[in-house]
Design a binder for these strands. Structure first.
Lengths: 205, 205
DNA sequence: TAAGAATACCCCCAAAAAGGGGTTTTTCAA
DNA sequence: TTGAAAAACCCCTTTTTGGGGGTATTCTTA
């Protein structure tokens, strides 16, 4: 049986080096390429036709969530394992929705990372322990947003600016700013448009 | 019978002067106050308790659409006639949804403006000729957006930035900019949040 | 009672959107 | 065939947002 061809996509070069090292003496996995951006990733895919991609979610030029969707739509046979420092429910969920086979946090055990790649290649899915726990907790408890966050989200959906929201909620604009940025992270939305869409589609408001 | 108490709300002072003049010798209408901003409008309402408000849609500090909703929720008995230079279907529609009794464009005939105030005071609704025509045309023909605009709106809802959209549509960023601003006007949305919401709620995409 | 959420605040700065003006070319229907 | 609508483009400016760091109180619950 041939080795699993793995493409590593991450802009954090040190981490990439570590990952390459990790698979150096692997009997089952061979790192056939690395990419440091979404753009490089796309061309690497065409050149190398990897079996599995270890895909960072925070690329400088692209959202891993979108990139994952794009790759899966063009190459459904390629398995994708998300690599991220976020352990946010909504992000994991969206990645899985977009076709990812696995999700590991960057500080996961090396064994977990190896495992995720191998399982992905074998059409199985894998979540590192931390994420697995998170998903179990959340699936029981689907209230991800705090009361304050919901309040804020409602006002964003109603089209108010941070300034207006601040007045309505009797808070400082900076506070609203922080909350808003937090909402983007929590929901894995890259901007207001997605935020509003998620709020409406998933009836969070 | 007492005269109709009219509050004029518009930041365009010359226009306000013209309107005051228009009602100067009216036997039925008396201008009891003017306001040049949303803020002034709110306090004028409390002080004067007008019967009818001639409300400009483009105030410096507020959207007439929102302000209308706000006033109607607090003072359902006050009639509102929208005064605007826009003759966009969606804007008129939203104003009427928000409780406006009439809608006149700023270059309407003076008689039409007088008429609208009187009819509003008598619990009737009134649209100036131009708007009336527009509404009749549109109600037959519910396709408000051109193909290109729909395409763009879809991409906005999907969370892409102007830059990304430009690439996808093989157009310049400036073009996307213009289209986008046009969409805001056409749909009477004040920002992306509202745009996305309308797109989803009215299933324009 | 101590860790962990949640709440509220702060800074800097860059990117994106919005508001305001425009122009030119193509397309299509009256 | 001509005139309106649609499509594409351009410039300038301000406002809003997003990205990246934080910190200091509460409140809550294991």
């Amino acid at each position: 049986m041939e080795k699993i061809k793995l493409l590593i996509v991450d802009d954090h070069r040190i981490l990439v080096a570590g990952l390459k090292k990790l698979f150096e003496n692997s009997a089952t996995v061979q790192v056939t390429g690395v990419a440091f951006s979404g753009k490089e990733c796309r061309s690497a895919i065409i050149k190398e036709l990897p079996d599995v991609i270890l895909l960072d979610i925070n690329l400088p030029d692209a959202s891993g969530i979108d990139l994952c969707k794009e790759i899966k739509s063009q190459h459904p046979e390629i398995k994708i394992v998300a690599l991220s420092s976020f352990n946010e429910y909504a992000i994991v969920r969206r990645m899985l929705e977009n076709g990812a086979s696995g999700y590991v946090v960057k500080n996961a055990m090396p064994e977990e990372i190896k495992m995720s790649v191998e399982m992905a290649a074998n059409n199985a899915s894998f979540l590192c322990e931390e994420i697995d726990l998170l998903m179990r907790k959340r699936s029981k408890n689907p209230i991800w947003l705090t009361p304050r966050e919901k309040e804020l989200l409602k006002l964003i959906v109603d089209g108010f600016t941070n300034h207006e929201i601040a007045e309505k909620m009797f808070l400082g604009v900076e506070t609203i700013n922080s909350y808003r940025k937090n909402l983007l992270i929590k929901l894995g939305a890259k901007n207001t448009a997605i935020l509003v869409r998620m709020a409406l589609e998933e009836k969070l408001v």
